[in-house]
Design a protein around this nucleic acid. Sequence first.
DNA 1: GTGATTTGACCGGG
DNA 2: CCCGGTCAAATCAC
Length: 297
Amino acid sequence: MESLIWQEKLPQASIDFNSQRRVMDQLAHGRDLAVRLQTIFRREPAQPRSHGSVTMARDIVEKILKSFSDSIYMLGAVESSDVSGSEDGGYEDSGANKKKLKSAGSKNGRGCYKRRKESRTWTEVSSTVEDSYAWRKYGQKEIINTKFPRCYYRCTHKLDQGCKATKQVQRMEECHRLYRITYIGEHTCKRTSNLSPQMITDADPWEPHDSAKPQKITAIVEKLGYFKLGNAQSDVTDKILLPVSSKLDAELELEPEPTVACDYDFSSPVDPDDFMASFLHLDAGDFALDQVGNALL
DNA sequence: GTGATTTGACCGGG
DNA sequence: CCCGGTCAAATCAC
């Protein structure tokens, strides 16, 4: 998949932060959808009756994706251009540099924490929040204009090994069974856990046998697969696809409703055209390739 | 008892 | 002042 380095710096552009942020969000959304399309086409061999159109669609999706990625790259470069570099890419605001530091231990010993401003950051979209690292949840926030809260995790070895890695997990609105995972900072810890992904999978309690919906959704996620946005960096790129984790569902108090955006029955072999029609909320018969672009933009 | 999670408070950037 | 990120006391789970 294409490489996308959000932190790379380019000359400053004249666009205010909030506008840029909104544009970035929209572009990221578009890119997510394009990635999903790309994943679908890559996984499904061309079928006789749709071979030509599917091949053409693949090319179009590639171009759409490249367009989104290039745009995000340029904006992303602007985003970070006002951040002065720090040596370790981790926390800054240390001591004397702080613009304003309230008296130590302002209240109950709080108030002197340091805020992460720059570190290596990349985003992934995955069907599971699990990866090969041990994480400890330290917060959850409702984010305005988003349907689901964002969960904050830090490396379990932050205290004993000073590992600065954190991640933020947010359920995607477009497809409730997928998570947008933002990794911030890289692990400096030695991994002591040799827990395999499959062991995690086995421990996952959310595989009811009496409910068709979760099975269907799991099948969808497996079809859609695991994909990654951003620059390949961490070990988690090597992880295998896992069944959907129920943990976040419980945390978010979600009902096991099937997502609308991904409401497609994968019980039979997938026809990309049919799936696309379903994915874009079109009647199968009305589906045409140019609608893919229209729906994405 | 120990470690993980929850959750309201706090802080800083915009 | 708003909002997202972090802290840490309280609570939970094992």
